[in-house]
Design a protein around this nucleic acid. Structure first.
Length: 270
DNA sequence: ACGTCTACCTGTCGGC
DNA sequence: TGCCGACAGGTAGACG
């Protein structure tokens, strides 16, 4: 579920409501990817100051330190005055003065980790080597171009790695390469300047559009999968193996790259 | 430093 | 209907 757009949509949906609430209780379910890293007691009484995002991590600033929240493959967050009784896959919960924040994550690849600061200790470990934010000023074409030229890996895998630019997950990697007309297997350093410009623009465009679409379908957080459904109806190639390319009519191909599925149109992407 | 692979976990779906 | 393998939106950490 969560690539950058979903995480950002989640952030926007929660930020205003959660700002200023104070933590009154902490409930843990089964272990997530890492331990919380702080005694639960120390969170009690702390106020939530803001909710930010870095890559696919949510950063919840507290009076002391911050919580890094990652949704992994299957995580979703809800925040409401009251929630139904906790289920088998609800593995983290904060009871606050303004409602209950709950992480639902069946596969438990997600994480909630406390860090004293975002640029030290666990914060640095998790956030320190992330690439630039695709929707911020720092994502310049020249920087992107230099990054492409430094890498010999297939362009799809470079995008997915998050080392150059964060937030492009497995769905959007296929989608942006289709939009830019670049074969996913092409070594990054072999992508030409004009194609790189198309790709740079496609990344911004696709992610921004997805956020806008997610914002409209996920606004009330009652149907958690609303966004994924909406996006996949308009996907150009993702999960469309064998179906006609929307541009040329040829069959969409599916291959494996680094144990992940990639979809593309062999005729439109060179 | 770079590229590749493994591991973590549960649910779902297609084929037999 | 039931079982079984393949696969799923991520990424740190280990290894060569």
């Amino acid at each position: 579920m969560p690539e950058l757009p979903e995480v950002e949509v989640t952030r926007r949906g929660l930020a205003d409501a959660i700002q200023g609430v104070s933590i009154e209780g902490v409930q843990l379910g089964k272990p997530l990817r890492w331990p919380l890293g702080i005694a639960e007691q120390r969170l009690l009484g702390q106020a939530v100051r803001s909710l930010r995002r870095r890559g696919k991590y949510l950063l919840m600033d507290l009076d002391e330190g911050l919580l890094l929240i990652h949704l992994g493959m299957s995580g979703s967050l809800r925040f409401a005055p009251e929630l139904p009784p906790r289920g088998a896959h609800d593995h983290f919960e904060l009871r606050t003065s303004g409602g209950v924040l709950r992480l639902h994550d069946p596969r438990r690849f997600g994480a909630v980790v406390w860090a004293e600061r975002e640029d030290a200790g666990m914060g640095l470990k998790l956030l320190g080597s992330l690439g630039v934010e695709p929707l911020e000023e720092g994502f310049t074409f020249e920087g992107f171009w230099r990054g492409l030229q430094r890498s010999r890996v297939a362009i799809k895998q470079l995008l997915l790695s998050g080392k150059l630019v964060v937030g492009v997950g497995n769905i959007y990697a296929s989608e942006v390469l289709f939009l830019a007309g670049i074969a996913p297997t092409k070594p990054a350093r072999r992508v030409g300047r004009a194609a790189a410009q198309r790709l740079h623009a496609a990344i911004r465009q696709v992610l921004a559009q997805a956020i806008a679409a997610g914002g409209s379908t996920l606004r009330d957080f009652s149907h958690v999968d609303g966004y994924a459904g909406a996006f996949q109806e308009q996907a150009s190639v993702y999960d469309r193996a064998g179906q006609p390319c929307r541009r040329c009519g040829g069959a969409v191909a599916q291959i494996q790259q680094g144990q992940r599925s990639t979809y593309y149109c062999p005729r439109c992407q060179k």
